[in-house]
Amino acid sequence: MNTSSELGLRDRKRIETRARLERAAVTLALRDGLALATVDAISEEAGVSPRTFFNYFDSKEDAVLGVRDLQLTSQTIRLHTVRADGSELVSSVVRLLLAVIAPMIGEADLREQRMDIVKTHPELLSRQLNQMTRMADELVAAVRTLVASDPDPSRLQTNPEMLLALCGSGVRIAIREWVAAGSTTPPEQLESRAASLVREVTKNIQ
């Protein structure tokens, strides 16, 4: 077997193991309650050791939500670059942040179960804040690239850190509203809601 094949197999096994851990965490949190969904119990349910668990997640809460740090490669950032079709800078940053937390809101088969857990334990949403804090340097660099790609010269002096903070707040509020409303609307609507919240704030403070 050549090296590329070995790497491909290794990657597939890691994806499968992560998926088992996420499903085990969600299953146990729903069945037994979040307090009893311990790392040991989740690991046993997934058929791995607790040591292996921590190769994938920092905590049981992260496993329940499917938190994973997105590698912000140049290709990833290009997917959210401000487009010449009129896509605004705020929307581009919001899309980037939603991509970072996509596992929690985007995987349809687990999304409803995760949202049921979050409704009972809204404090879990703070894990997204922790994730963004961990990725702060990467996110600021990515936003700086997005600002530089904006075709509107009037926005090239925008402070990346301030823009990231505003959009991050908009995303968190939009998600809280979405969960409180039953998370029945398509998650794609989160982008427009978060972006409108940011625009509303910036308009009101001018």
Rank of each mutant, 00 (worst) to 15 (best):
L7G: 05
K13D: 06
I15Q: 09
T17P: 13
R18A: 11
R23L: 13
V26W: 08
L28M: 10
L28S: 12
R31P: 14
G33L: 06
L34F: 10
A35P: 04
A37Q: 07
I42Q: 11
G47V: 15
P50N: 06
R51N: 11
D58G: 15
D62I: 14
D69W: 00
Q75Y: 05
Q75D: 14
L79F: 03
H80T: 06
T81S: 12
S91M: 05
S92I: 03
S92C: 04
V93Y: 02
V94C: 02
L96W: 06
L97H: 07
L97D: 11
L98C: 07
P103D: 09
G106Q: 06
A108Y: 07
D109E: 15
L110D: 07
R111D: 07
H121K: 04
L124W: 09
S126D: 10
Q128E: 13
Q131S: 12
A141F: 03
A142S: 05
A148H: 02
A148N: 04
S149D: 10
S154P: 06
R155W: 04
N159F: 01
P160Y: 00
E161N: 01
L163Q: 01
L164E: 04
C167R: 01
G168E: 04
G168P: 11
S169H: 04
G170W: 01
I173S: 05
I173G: 00
V179H: 03
G182Q: 01
T184W: 00
P186T: 13
P187Y: 09
E191M: 11
E191V: 14
R193T: 15
A195H: 08
R199Q: 09
R199I: 10
T202F: 03
I205W: 04
